[in-house]
Design a protein around this nucleic acid. Structure first.
Length: 569
RNA sequence: GCGGUCGUAGUCUAGUGGCAGGACAGGGGCUUCCCGAGCCUCUAACCCGGGUUCAAAUCCCGGCGGCCGCACCA
């Protein structure tokens, strides 16, 4: 396992997929550079993600700042759930989360403030398990903070997820979608988490890339019209009690393993997406978060996990965030975050209504009579005798002598609700790594080991290599012409004339280039070239004029090159 | 953050106080060649900072980074 990991990492660095950031200054943990090829594959994966989760949904994509002001994260809960108080043992150096440790040892629920923790430590003379005394509590906050503007400025934080930028635009978004649910809003971008100890290279980063979709729905209708596409797909589910099910998504919903159809829909769609970019089916499963594992905002959460040299790692989190975020932002911003949902037909509702008797109110209440009458008309509470009214802060009791009870009928056209949100959230860096690892393969050609990245054609950063068999001017000239022609057709093409032909094939095999075109002696005679398939190493001969069309067709499928010509050599 | 361990060309590695070597990769050339062929040639490294010493890649201290374990992971 370790051996295979270092072999891959060695190749990824050497060939230009991923590099350590700030390398010439010694580097720092938790940051990576996307080198040319890694950047190419990530861009391809992003583009396919858009296809799946934006273009083919009722969804749009937006882009909001990576810095957020403090208010956002106070409302979202990130400031509180993000700032833990930690205590450290002076003797053995162990670090505990203060509230967890206090609860475990003393059974006390403590506030997460420095003062509260300090007081409890002193009052109970709490010691570490090793007997050592615990140092003063300290904050650790997993958000990067910064200041906006000069001087003291305004406190800001680098966003820990792209989702908040979407939630706080909700009023504009619901308007954009002309007031109708359901709709989705996606964002792809950088996020930041000041991890205490980032490890495992690409897997735990302090700055990384997310692709998130926030899908807003009527809470009573967590369904999707396209669920049938995935409903009969069997998937591997590991539930919150660690039981493994191999079960269709439809069954999983009806048995209550997955909370609702919409979550199941996105599980199915995520699975298909991951397969489409080249993640191995037998190394993929969906695992439900345990009760104690879920984020502060989630009702139910399923992770897409993949098996890598690092073990099972989480690539995607699919969470039902309920109305947590919208309600919270509504409360903190005092903006209405609800949607008016029209009934299919207006509902007629009988209503008891109070009718003020002005001829009684006038003489008794004089100048206030008019205000009181309005309040009586709008009275919604229990009908008693007397009723109590609040007139501009003044409490007034009014006996039944001053009003009549009337029956009226009203038409109600709909109601206001706060939508729920289902969130598939993709960690792009981990996905890129996993695709690379799952594609990495070796085989034996003529008794010699060949390293080959069996990337799907739709994610390969270099799609075609054009190779003159010999470094002869006439060969090179034709090669450059073909390269230019394919490039202007939008095909990512590289020209390479250095080293023997075998060496060049291996070079492009190793970076996962699906096709090599070779210009040889016959090209000069009949204007044909060979097209070589990376996985089978088979070749066919094609006319130069057919190249563009055939390659485009091959790139958008998994078809064999032998469909387009006779095997050559 | 704690403990262990490691850090030498792009990559992998030899060197344990006395001129830093090799393999592969890469560039240029020869070869005119369909799966890492061969020959010539070039480029290229001691993680950083201090200390000990006539002399440090090597010994000591600190930092940074990688890996493993613990802790953490909204």
């Amino acid at each position: 396992m370790l051996e295979s990991m270092s072999k891959i990492i060695e190749m990824l660095i050497r060939r230009g997929f991923l590099w350590q950031s700030f390398e010439i200054y010694g580097g720092i943990a938790g940051f990576i550079d996307f080198a040319p090829l890694g950047n190419g594959i990530r861009r391809n994966i992003e583009e396919l993600w858009r296809d799946y989760f934006v273009v083919n949904e009722r969804a749009v994509e937006i882009d909001t700042p990576t810095i957020g002001i403090e208010d956002i994260f106070r409302a979202s809960g990130h400031l509180d759930s993000f700032t833990d108080v930690a205590i450290e043992c002076e003797n053995c150096g162990k670090i505990y989360r203060a509230d967890h440790y206090i609860k475990e040892k003393l059974g006390i629920e403590s506030d997460e403030t420095m003062e509260a923790v300090l007081e409890i430590l002193e009052t109970y003379d709490l010691k570490c398990e090793c007997g050592g005394s615990l140092k003063n509590p300290e904050h650790f906050n997993l958000m990067f903070s910064t200041t906006i503007g000069p001087g003291k400025g305004k406190r800001g934080y680098l966003r820990p997820e792209t989702a908040q930028g979407i939630f706080i635009d909700f009023k504009r978004l619901i308007d954009y979608f002309r007031g109708k649910l359901p709709f989705g809003v996606a964002q792809i971008g950088r996020v930041y988490r000041n991890e205490i100890s980032p490890r495992q290279g690409v897997i735990r980063l302090r700055e990384f890339n997310q692709a998130e979709l926030e899908y807003f729905v009527d809470p009573r209708n967590k369904t999707h019209p396209d669920f049938k596409i995935y409903s009969d797909t069997p998937v591997i589910l590991v539930d919150k009690l660690d039981y493994e099910h191999i079960i269709t998504l439809k069954e999983a919903v009806s048995q209550g393993i997955i909370a609702n159809e919409l979550l199941a829909y996105f599980i199915g769609k995520t699975r298909e997406f991951l397969l489409c970019i080249g993640i191995k089916e037998d190394k993929m499963r969906f695992r439900q978060h345990r009760e104690d594992e879920r984020a502060h905002y989630a009702i139910d959460c399923w992770d897409a996990e993949c098996l890598t040299a690092y073990g099972w790692i989480e690539l995607v989190g699919i969470a039902d965030r309920g109305d947590y975020d919208l309600k919270s932002h509504a409360e903190f911003s005092r903006e209405d975050m609800s949607v008016f949902i029209q009934f299919k037909e207006p509902v007629r509702m009988a209503r008891r209504k109070l009718k003020p008797l002005m001829n009684k109110l006038g003489p008794e209440f004089r100048r206030k009579a008019k205000l009181i009458a309005e309040e009586i008309e709008n009275y919604e509470g229990e009908i008693e005798d007397p009723i109590t009214l609040n007139i501009n802060g003044e409490i007034v009791t009014v006996s039944s002598d001053f009003f009549e009870i009337g029956e009226t009928e009203e038409e109600v056209f709909g109601e206001k609700i706060v939508p729920h949100v289902i969130e598939p959230s993709f960690g792009l860096d981990r996905i890129v790594y996993t695709v690379l690892e799952h594609s990495f393969d070796t085989d034996i050609i003529d008794g010699e080991e060949r390293k080959v990245l069996r990337l799907k054609r739709n994610v390969s950063p270099v799609q075609v290599a054009v190779l003159p068999l010999l470094t002869r001017e006439d060969f090179i000239e034709i090669s450059r012409e073909i390269t230019k022609r394919l490039q202007s057709a939008g095909i990512f093409t590289e020209f390479d004339d250095s080293g023997s032909i075998g060496r060049r094939y291996r070079r492009f095999d190793e970076i996962g280039t699906p096709f090599c075109i070779t210009i040889d002696h016959q090209t000069l005679e009949d204007n044909t070239v060979t097209l070589r398939d990376r996985d089978s190493t088979e070749q066919i001969r094609l006319k130069v004029e057919e190249l563009e069309g055939i390659i485009k067709e091959l790139l958008s499928s998994d078809g064999s090159i032998l469909e387009f010509g006779e095997k050559f050599r």
